[in-house]
Amino acid sequence: MLLELSDVYTKYGQIPMLQGVSMTIDAGDAACVLGSNGAGKTTLLKTIIGIVKPFQGSLSYRGENITPLPSHKIIQRGIAIVPEREGLFPGLSVDDNLRLGAYYEKDKYALAQRKEEVLAIFPRLRERISQQAGTLSGGERKMLGIARAILANPQLILMDEPSLGLAPALVNEVYGVIKKIKEEKKIALLIIEQNAQKALDVVDRGYIMQKGSIIGSGSRDELSENEIVKSSYLVS
């Protein structure tokens, strides 16, 4: 098992947020968490990488208890994140943004090789390699966020609403890339989405989240038939 959350509770100040969340991700797995605005999806990701600390429950990664570790130590273990929005360094070049994605890579040769692979997936980033990230379009920024995560060579990538704020054509493009990553790389994916249609298209299974709790889970087919999913997240 790659990642396991056991009965995790968090709060913001006095306000409870995650309420007994348990989930597992296996190596090479692709799962999603569906939930509406304010359900606590972003909080879940922040909890996994240690930005938000649980007051009860625990997290383990490849068998190691990571609950008390600071964020940079958790990320060093092989988790990368594609933030919801504004997750880039706007004043730095595309190249430097990528370089910071592979913060812990010591092997320069391996890094250069991986960068070539990534730029082959994202040819538009190659064209803009020395441009400031802040000058990229919304779609290009998303791509840069994903490219940066791949460059870290993680075993697990967490994606926070990859379709958010993008025009339908761009959403298809982004999900095309996600599908490619899933098929070509041995990276596990945890995708957070409100757009269930797109997410269920690439994942094998998923969870439904409401008000800080996991209220359901199942395979892709089960979720597609699930009443809550059909009524709340498949309306588009």
Partner: peptide, 24 residues
């Protein structure tokens, strides 16, 4: 330098810096 770039990263976007694993 990498540490210099991470100074800029923390200056420009503190949360994103944490998310790429920079030790603030």
């Amino acid at each position: 330098t990498k540490i210099g770039l991470s100074i800029q990263a923390v200056s420009q976007n503190r949360e994103a810096a944490t998310m790429v694993g920079i030790n603030r």
